[in-house]
Write a protein that binds this DNA or RNA. Structure first.
Lengths: 141, 141
DNA sequence: CGCAAACTTTACGTTTACGTAAATGTAATC
DNA sequence: GATTACATTTACGTAAACGTAAAGTTTGCG
């Protein structure tokens, strides 16, 4: 019948290229809470979204506990003012963390640019007076 | 005597807020190769730079093996054309990885923006008709 | 001299994030 | 009704990245 939104654990595993063990592990630690039809886990689109967020966090080097904090941002206890205020705090924290990452990445990209430039330069030189080996030692750093 | 560039393991640990055990571990797996004065490790500015790169990699979620690949970009076997060519390949790989991260980060920042907006909106509403609870369920993603 | 502070090696312990195997259940298909 | 394919729980195993404890140098200071 309804097969539009009903996802099995295998479907998810295939979609995100992870193992079912991984998905169950995320459930073990409370990151996912799929419904059950009997014993079998049934995943909703929102479960899929949570999983996507978790995996994104992973790619960014977040621990599963950190990812939990992020994922929970999208599923807050609605309506309580104090919790909402705490939530803005958490969002701010995450923003700072991600902003630091952004700085790190930009530095790294810059580094890669420099490394590439240096490498190309060395290649040019090597090809020019190339015979068999050993140009001059170039200065370092 | 010369104390300008001579760094002890404790100095480095303090500077980067890590333990000496961590630094020794990086040496164990070949990420650092400080000189020795007798038994004692002596770190050069370039060692410090390598360490900085390693830690940046960590913040970005790179494994130490991945960081090794990056760090080695800056300390390649100079002069060999094939190695230089391989090197440009590695640089390109790293660039792709970092580019994916950049996409992930931008997505996450966007998500955080949305989360914050939603949160502020909910706060406003909550303060307006403040009684106890229950907004509507909002659609997702 | 004596002692603390900072260095060393060796080696077992711990946490995170799953892997992997075993034993079992259920459902469709031949 | 036997096979095949996917699901389940339970539980021990493992790789990475250190933590931590033990036991021993080396160095400087009062």
């Amino acid at each position: 019948m309804t097969e539009t939104t009903e996802l099995g654990i295998g479907d998810l595993a295939r979609e995100f290229d992870i193992t079912t063990r991984t998905i169950r592990h995320y459930e073990d630690i409370g990151l996912l809470k799929p419904q059950r039809r009997g014993q079998t886990r049934i995943y909703s689109p929102s479960d899929r979204t949570r999983l996507r967020l978790i995996l994104r966090g992973k790619r960014l080097g977040f621990s599963l506990e950190e990812s939990r904090a992020i994922v929970d941002l999208y599923d807050p206890a609605h309506g309580n003012v104090e919790q909402l205020q705490a939530l803005t705090g958490h969002i701010q924290q995450q923003r700072e963390k991600v902003t630091r990452q952004l700085r790190d990445i930009n530095k790294m990209i810059k580094s890669l640019d420099e490394a590439e430039t240096a490498c190309r330069k060395a290649l040019k030189k090597a090809r020019k007076n190339a015979p068999k080996a050993g140009g001059k030692k170039s200065g370092k750093t």
